[in-house]
Computed example of a mutant assay.
Amino acid sequence: MNGPVPGGRQLFTADDVRAAVAAVVESGALPAIVQAGHPVLRAQAVPFTGQLPETQLARLIDIMRDTMHAAPGVGLAAPQIGIPLQLAVLEDLYDVPEENAAARERRPLEFLAILNPRCTPVGTETASHYEGCLSMSGWQAVVDRAATIDLAYDDDHGVPAVRRLTGWQARIAQHETDHLSGTLYLDRAHTRSVTSDEEYAAHWARPDIAEARQVLHF
């Protein structure tokens, strides 16, 4: 990991959140996923404090889930659809080869909507794997992440909860929580590992990163 990663500044207000949510909910179509360079991806998202009616929040979560599925992806943060709100959705029910699942500790993750999430590492063990981002289409890089975390969040009814996550589930939660502080995975990546999707498929699509680490020298 390349040392501490600075977060974004608070650039948006509760009114900005309400306006962005209204635009998405009322559009009648799935929103576009914004790409790196959009200001919302580099800002500190606004904590959820009841700015939205319960029915509108529920509709937003449904839209985010559908957008994540359509991408397809295993997580989506509200800033990725232009909404500066501390909200993310997670779900990983894809079939993956057994060897890959074992190497990455990738187990099914049922759908989860999280508000105001915070990730706290448990222990000092880390895991290093390639990851990508729906807001940086076409690229992947190796990121070191805590192997086990406690994920503290509010659910969609405002009830506080804590879940201990390990392996790939912990990686997904950390990646999406980073989005809410204006951090992209590339900020944490080994930059010598950066690869296009095409080159990843041709050379580095392995259960682990040992060969990539040796050849690319990171």
Rank of each mutant, 00 (worst) to 15 (best):
R9M: 14
G158V: 10
L93H: 10
I33S: 02
A202N: 08
A147F: 08
A71N: 07
G132I: 04
S135Y: 08
L90M: 09
A70I: 01
A101R: 01
I83D: 14
T67Q: 04
I114M: 08
V143I: 12
H203E: 12
A36C: 11
G132Q: 05
V40N: 04
T177R: 00
A152W: 03
T148A: 13
R164C: 01
A77I: 05
G50P: 14
A202E: 14
S137F: 11
V215S: 14
L76K: 11
A78N: 10
A210R: 09
R206D: 11
V96K: 07
Q214I: 10
T67K: 05
S196M: 03
G138N: 13
L151R: 04
H190P: 11
L11P: 01
I209F: 03
G73S: 10
Q10F: 05
E125A: 14
D178R: 00
A71D: 13
E125W: 15
D92W: 04
V215G: 05
A212E: 04
R145N: 05
R213W: 12
A23H: 11
F111I: 06
D155I: 08
D156A: 12
I81N: 02
D154G: 15
A173K: 02
P47R: 11
L30C: 09
D154W: 12
T166D: 15
L52D: 15
A88V: 05
A113N: 08
A88P: 02
Q214S: 15
V162A: 13
R118Y: 08
V24D: 09
T166S: 10
E176G: 00
V17K: 05
I209C: 02
F111R: 09
A88M: 08
G182F: 01
R164H: 10
R163P: 06
G37R: 01
A205S: 15
G7A: 00
V122Q: 09
I83K: 13
A29K: 10
F111H: 13
P84Y: 12
Q174C: 07
V21W: 06
Q10H: 09
